[in-house]
Design a protein around this nucleic acid. Structure first.
Length: 142
DNA sequence: GTTCTCACA
DNA sequence: TGTGAGCA
């Protein structure tokens, strides 16, 4: 379990993350605004990113480069932060349940985009081939 | 020197 | 998204 702690331990400032992810500070903060990452803050309101955050940013970057827009990314790797009245025990069951949820949602939006709209200017977002990617990506948000 | 927020091109 | 201003 201590591994989780280390993984979520906030360590590097935005400058480091920029180099690690090849993203601009602007982008990183922008994604944060959209809830894609939630870095910790320290002393002077400085952002501190954990390994998890960096990994997530890398995934985001990956999706961005594939033409997925923020909205799409949100739907894919935004943890289904439910109400959690039962924050007592967040077991593996709830996690696997969460996975299925995101997966079905993913399928749904894939269908919608493939069958419905057709072409929204500059927004090709999702194609079937990326579904595999998403499945893989979802594995990181354990 | 680096990061932060906010605003504007 | 980029960039610049004004702070901490």
């Amino acid at each position: 379990m201590s591994d989780e702690i280390r993984r979520n331990m906030a360590l590097f400032p935005i400058g480091i993350v920029m180099k690690l992810t090849d993203l601009t500070a602007r982008q990183i903060r922008y994604y944060e605004q959209h809830g894609l990452v939630i870095p910790a803050r320290t002393s002077g309101n400085q952002r501190l990113y954990s390994f998890n955050d960096v990994e997530r940013l890398l995934e985001i970057k990956d999706l961005i480069e594939k033409g997925v827009n923020i909205a799409g990314i949100k739907q894919v790797l935004l943890p289904v932060s439910k109400d959690s009245e039962d924050a007592t025990v967040l077991t593996e069951q709830s996690e696997s349940k969460r996975r299925e949820l995101t997966d079905s949602q993913l399928h749904k939006m894939l269908k919608q985009q493939l069958l419905g709209g057709g072409k929204r200017p500059g927004q090709v977002s999702l194609i079937q081939g990326e579904l595999t990617r998403f499945s893989r990506n979802n594995n990181i948000l354990r």
